[in-house]
């Protein structure tokens, strides 16, 4: 849900619209609101949940698509380890 609704909005705003239009102050204002606990919580949810979404999906894409089941441990550590690292 977070990855499907909020992530495209964020990428559009911070990855395309603001760099192209040069709205630097708006980016600063948004991230400056990180001092607010609610904004901190929002950023935490925005970053942690989609990372686990990626870890789970990417793991099974590698299994099914590339058929590398013998590298089970490596893929597991790379995917979920990356998600935990990003969350930390």
């Amino acid at each position: 849900m977070v990855a499907a609704v909020f992530i495209p909005i964020h990428l559009f705003l911070f990855g395309l619209a603001f760099p192209l239009a040069g709205f630097r102050s708006r980016v600063r204002a948004f991230v400056g609101s990180g001092a607010i606990p609610l904004a901190k919580m929002y950023l935490f949810v925005l970053c942690s949940l989609p990372l686990f979404h990626w870890a789970h999906r990417f793991r099974f894409t590698v299994y099914d698509g590339l058929q590398v089941k013998h590298l089970n441990e490596v893929v597991l550590v790379f995917c979920y380890g990356g998600a935990v690292l990003g969350r930390w």
Partner: peptide, 25 residues
């Protein structure tokens, strides 16, 4: 199906971009 599963890479990329933006700030 595989393309849909690979969209998770774009999701991870967006999160990494957000984290880099926060770090830069």
């Amino acid at each position: 199906f595989i393309l849909r599963e690979l969209t998770s890479v774009a999701v991870a990329w967006s999160v990494v971009l957000t984290l880099l933006l926060l770090r830069a700030l």
